[in-house]
Nucleic acid binder design. Structure first.
Lengths: 204, 204
DNA sequence: CCAGAAATTCTACACGGTGTCAATTTTCAC
DNA sequence: GTGAAAATTGACACCGTGTAGAATTTCTGG
């Protein structure tokens, strides 16, 4: 199952295959956009990448593996971005910045994030990736809530549980809004920010 | 495409086919539970219902149509329940009752509701059904918010937009919690209720 | 530059699930 | 009972998947 990409990772010069691999993922992303996961066939991806079906199976073991790799690529980008973003102490500002950053993430990667969510159930690896990503968000939200004075703990009305619900609210709201337009997304963000602020008791 | 079930609907006596149709949907629901949508094959459903693949195609045009019918059956049940539930004027009580009812719905029909959500993207008819259901909820939440003094309107911080975000929060939170246990679902409900109350400004 | 090895690509094949069809059997109304 | 409508069947064609072995290209050290 994992006999693919043996140890091709560390290489001085970039092998031809690395290019192909990227081409495959790019094509996959493009096809996902206007055909959707189910309609997209392995043949389509191969053709778009300029190779044959057979050749594609040299790089990935299945259609699922391709999408897993695509999601992994995008998700690593998210983690990267989260790590390098300044953390603010002041709750109100922290919330505003978090929401702004999230809007940008969805504007750039909405498509892949949506498919990640859709496939979380059926493709275990993607479920893993996405739930880990969600945990990062939940942890961050929890921290802000606690700094704002919400009691910490895991009971229904304490910070941790609230953070989880708020995270799902944001995920789902952005999921829908990002399918519409940037304006819709911006408005949805404002609404979520407002609810978050209110829940944190920051409605002066 | 719709040459199936011609006008078999209105009938004095119950035709044999009506039984089969129900058997098919029941089997589909059962299979969905421990195989999932993708793994479940038309042959499986037919076998479970005690007929051949060919016979199943007499009732439904495809696997998708079967699931659409199943979702429709469940969703009509939801609408029924919503309609016959007493509407309370007092916001706090209205919210408590709504959440309690929602917990019951997810306890009874969690599986089908989750698949409905999962297939909303890929199966247009299901998307239609589910978004209509969501609209009912959003309308109800909006009404409660307005009665609680939230300004009505569609701007980001007004009742309509907030109701939408709260609806998605509940949907997603319940989606996840209902996969765990009844206790988890109850806790999740309490958290959502708390956030809803806070957002409505009812935190006395 | 060249030979062998590794990487890459191709074609052909077997398998499984889908949806269709014409033929057949069962059920129902009169 | 009989003829029409309902229900069921098995066989078939199609398409997408994943595999295998052979062929080709690219890299590497001498």
């Amino acid at each position: 199952m994992s006999s693919h990409h043996p140890a091709r990772s560390r290489r001085s010069t970039e092998r031809k295959g690395d290019l192909r691999e990227r081409a495959i993922l790019d094509t996959c992303e493009a096809l996902l956009a206007h055909k959707g996961y189910n309609a997209m066939t392995v043949g389509d991806i191969a053709q778009g990448a300029g190779i044959t079906r057979g050749a594609l199976y040299f790089y990935f073991g299945s259609k699922q593996e391709v999408v897993v790799a695509l999601v992994a690529r995008t998700v690593e980008h998210l983690w990267e971005r989260s790590r390098t973003t300044a953390q603010t102490d002041e709750p109100r500002q922290a919330i505003a910045e978090a929401m702004q950053r999230t809007v940008e993430l969805w504007n750039e990667h909405g498509l892949v994030m949506r498919t990640a969510i859709d496939l979380s159930l059926t493709v275990p690896e993607i479920g893993e990736l996405w739930s880990h990503t969600a945990d990062l968000f939940i942890t961050a939200i929890t921290a802000v809530l606690e700094r704002a004075g919400i009691q910490d703990g895991t009971e229904p009305e304490q910070a941790s549980a609230m953070a989880r619900a708020l995270c799902w609210m944001i995920e789902r709201t952005f999921y829908h809004a990002s399918q519409e337009s940037r304006e819709t997304l911006q408005g949805a963000s404002a609404t979520c920010e407002h609810i978050w602020l209110t829940s944190a008791g920051l409605t002066t």
